[in-house]
């Protein structure tokens, strides 16, 4: 395992890691707010909204993410909906993770005592103010560990985009391994994933600490 070889393949691995991080970032930006909205809808008193969202969550959690990626990129064009590779990946990831986050947030929302809403109501806070200032900060703290779990899964799930031909970290390592008949690229891929996850874990711990009030 010469250092020379490592420095030769690292740039392409970092490039792959860059794409992985981009996917990760945009998926979170899209799926966290989506999950929040869906969870509010899942708790809604308007039944049709709840039914539609229940079906959405069931579809997203009930089928493999791999299938969803293939469906969006290879399936939808057959009915005239064409995505770029990268857009297809982000679209599928946001829909999929949005459903998981919605379920996590729904649990968090349900654990907020009715008295909190009543306390806010007699102080004449509007529904929106109550959600923003009273409910979300408490839900946020409750769901943080579960959200952290999903966030870490997301880093690794992003490797599924190889199936639609996107050059992420795993694909970069795979290409180098089969080209050079060497284990080194795959080991490096593992190390890069581990480092990314270590950094994320550290950040999540910090955030948990920052928002704990007990």
């Amino acid at each position: 395992m010469s250092l020379n070889y490592i420095s030769e393949i690292l740039p392409s691995l970092f490039q792959g890691a860059g794409l992985t991080l981009q996917l990760f970032f945009w998926t979170l930006i899209g799926s966290l707010p989506l999950g929040l909205l869906v969870s509010l809808g899942l708790n809604s008193k308007i039944k049709p909204i709840k039914w539609i969202l229940d079906i959405y969550v069931w579809l997203m959690r009930g089928t493999p993410l791999l299938l969803q990626l293939i469906f969006v990129f290879y399936g939808l064009p057959l009915i005239g909906v064409v995505f770029e590779r990268y857009d297809a990946a982000i679209f599928a990831f946001i829909l999929n993770y949005g459903a998981y986050f919605a379920e996590i947030f729904r649990g968090g929302l349900q654990s907020i005592d009715k008295g909190q809403y009543e306390g806010a109501k007699v102080l004449r806070l509007s529904y929106f103010q109550t959600i923003r200032k009273v409910v979300i900060p408490q839900v946020f703290r409750i769901v943080l560990p579960s959200v952290g779990n999903e966030v870490i899964n997301l880093v690794k799930d992003s490797s599924l985009v190889y199936v639609i031909g996107l050059g992420d970290l795993l694909r970069a390592g795979n290409i180098a391994t089969s080209r050079d008949v060497s284990l080194v690229p795959l080991l490096l891929v593992a190390v890069i994933y581990l480092v990314m996850i270590a950094v994320l874990t550290y950040i999540l711990r910090k955030v948990e600490k920052r928002y704990s009030y007990k």
Binding site: D113, G115, Q116, E118, G119, A120, V134, P137, Q138, R141, Y213, K214
Partner: peptide, 10 residues
């Protein structure tokens, strides 16, 4: 003033 106060814990 509620029986169990309903203060906002956060």
């Amino acid at each position: 003033v509620f029986q169990d106060f309903n203060l906002f814990p956060h």
